Amino acid sequence: MRVRDAVVVVTGASSGIGRAAALEFAGKGASVVVAARRPEALRELVRECEAAGGRALAVPTDVADAHQVNNLARLAAERFGRIDVWVNAAAVSVFAPFEEIPLDDFRRVLDVNVMGCVHGARAALRYLRDQGRGVLVNVSSVVGAVPQPYTAPYGMSKFAVRALGVSLRQELRLAKARGVRVCTVLPATIDTPFFAHAANYTERRAVAMPPVYSPERVARAIVGLVRVPRREVVVGPVGRVLLLQAKFWPGLTEKLTAFQVDRSHLSRQQDADPTHGNLHEPAPGTGEVHGGWHGGRRTAVRRVATGALVLTGAALAVARGRR
């Protein structure tokens, strides 16, 4: 599908991957409908999208509310005449041991991350199926294949998003709706405000676990799926290595992931107060793409981490072959 002149709806567009995707589409000449809970962030994003060369419309939306998502789809179609692409990028998270996560927060993560994708997919597919063509992109995570400690609801939600994509592809195939494509994106650690916005009850700051990749990299992958749809795309070499390790050595991958998350995904000191983050109220401000996790050593850290994972996999393969 041509990206230029396409009509694209992006949820979770106030910051991070969603905002980067909206700007990437606008820069390619698409008409972009941006949705999130922060009106001021959306207004600023509309200005940025128009400056990049696209047309844009802001629709404040809480994706956990099906009526608001249906209204988002209706307004997009009324303004631009159709919907060609829908990107479900809205997501929230909480850091805490499983038994210490408030149940209201647990449910909220699932409502936004899972039901938000359900609401978006149902709203989008009405238009895409009627047209006989279009692309639905769901943003999952590498955590949707390799879960980690202290973020149980987030991991559950990203597994569910991945499963939703598989189920929808099967149903569309059975319905012979071959012009409608469903794609899932699984990013590794991305430099966004996500970690600062998350609820947190660990008393330790959430830190982007290296290696950290740019949100623009994910945005380019999403735009690429519109041009050439694929079932699933992992963004970030370390993500691909992790999925491979989890497939062949699941037990060892669980142990290594638990150690790595405890060591580098949370600060070493107890230096953070408990917070609901942006679960129930949106973060203040006009929004941003990046989270400030890229330091001067990012390339070196990325190479070291990638090399360590590859060497671990190779060593495991050799050890297995000697058994």
Rank of each mutant, 00 (worst) to 15 (best):
A77F: 07
D62L: 03
V32R: 00
D65P: 11
G54H: 00
V118S: 09
I83H: 04
L125T: 11
T61N: 00
R126Y: 08
G54Y: 01
V92M: 07
S93G: 15
S31D: 04
N88Y: 03
A20T: 12
V94I: 15
A56S: 11
T61E: 02
S15W: 01
W86R: 06
S31Q: 11
V69C: 02
M115F: 14
E78R: 12
N88K: 07
G53K: 08
D62G: 05
V34R: 00
R43C: 05
R108W: 09
A22L: 01
V33R: 00
L103M: 13
L125W: 12
F80V: 10
A66H: 10
N71H: 13
R126G: 06
P60F: 05
C117D: 05
A96N: 11
P60H: 07
A121K: 12
V34F: 00
V92Y: 04
E50P: 10
L125G: 05
R19T: 12
E24K: 14
D104R: 14
L45A: 08
V46K: 01
P39N: 02
F95Y: 15
T61G: 03
A96M: 13
A30I: 08
L128R: 11
A13I: 08
A123H: 06
A64R: 03
F98E: 10
F25M: 12
E78D: 15
